[in-house]
Design a protein around this nucleic acid. Structure first.
Length: 309
DNA sequence: TTTAATGT
């Protein structure tokens, strides 16, 4: 009985990566749930128990038809910050916050190839579009942002996904957006931070970037602390007080460097250097309720915010 | 250059 319920749960939650396997070899369920790798058609694949909802891959999609490579486990190599409402797109993965109608986190794996100039890819052809895979109660619409005074700010930056037109188009789903101050923030300081992250691919073979919103408490006139943020549109999309980026660069020798940033969602003077927004990664983890890169082995971690650890 | 909204 319990075994049957487990099986049902696993089939629902492991769509895409392991669903095909379950359909063929139900007796090996325990092996899969234990997190071991499993063998399908003579090939060893890594099982990922408990991974919910892969929106772009149907349960019936055989594992080996996923472009020959498992892009999700490439992107998420160093761990998931959380597991609620996870959605994977062709070149990034996010966790969606249904209450606030913005992501909790967005994860990207960036290399030189992903950001190279590509005449086949045209950002100006892209449209911001609601993500139909989200229940209507929790879905943001373009009308929520219209006239709000806020930009639809990408969490996974469009400029990080230039391999194909489809990749850049998927970054325009509103699931990947949060309301950002345009002038002086999204179009300036935040954009500068995004460009800084892209430049890291000159030094590191692989760059892993986690981006998301924060809602930070503020001391008010009565001396007490409150979390206070605006909501916009009929769907009450939350306007985050701050945004974070936690980035890991993987050097050619396999060592890892980490950087963490928090920026307030407000107009920031042009001359402000990105380094002035560096914070200890732990500060972001505590504020966001997430653990970043928890599969990184301490012995591989070389620097945090430029300092030897 | 990349980031977007707004006005025609």
């Amino acid at each position: 009985m319990i075994r049957n319920r487990l099986l049902h749960l696993a089939q629902l939650s492991a769509i895409g990566l392991t669903g095909y396997y379950f359909g063929q070899n139900k007796d090996k369920l325990c092996d899969v749930l234990s997190g071991d790798s499993v063998v399908v058609d003579g090939k060893r694949i890594k099982s990922m128990p408990g991974l919910p909802v892969f929106g772009t891959v149907s349960a019936a999609t055989p594992y080996m038809e996923m472009g020959g490579k498992d892009r999700v486990s490439q992107i998420m190599k160093y761990g998931f910050p959380s597991l609620d409402n996870v959605r994977s797109y062709d070149d990034f993965v996010l966790s969606y916050d249904r209450r606030n109608k913005v992501p909790n986190w967005v994860f990207e794996h960036i290399t030189k190839d992903h950001i190279a100039k590509n005449d086949q890819v045209d950002r100006s052809k892209c449209d911001f579009k609601p993500d139909e895979s989200i229940h209507p109660f929790f879905r943001s619409q373009n009308t929520d942002y219209k006239g709000s005074g806020f930009d639809r700010g990408h969490m996974a930056a469009a400029g990080n996904h230039r391999l194909t037109q489809k990749h850049v188009e998927q970054t325009f789903f509103l699931t990947n957006m949060a309301p950002q101050v345009g002038e002086g923030f999204n179009r300036h300081a935040w954009n500068t931070l995004e460009k800084h992250v892209r430049k890291l691919t000159k030094v590191y073979n692989n760059v892993y970037c986690c981006t998301g919103p924060l809602y930070l408490p503020r001391r008010e006139a009565d001396g007490k602390s409150y979390v206070r943020y605006q909501v916009i549109g009929a769907n009450t999309v939350a306007v985050p007080t701050h945004f974070y980026k936690v980035v890991v660069g993987e050097a050619p020798d396999g060592t890892l460097d980490m950087e963490a940033y928090v920026m307030p969602n407000q107009k920031i003077p042009d001359e402000t250097p990105v380094s002035s927004f560096m914070v200890p990664p732990e500060t972001v983890e505590r504020a966001a309720g997430l653990l970043f890169f928890d599969k990184v082995h301490r012995s591989k971690l070389n620097r945090i915010n430029g300092k030897k650890v």
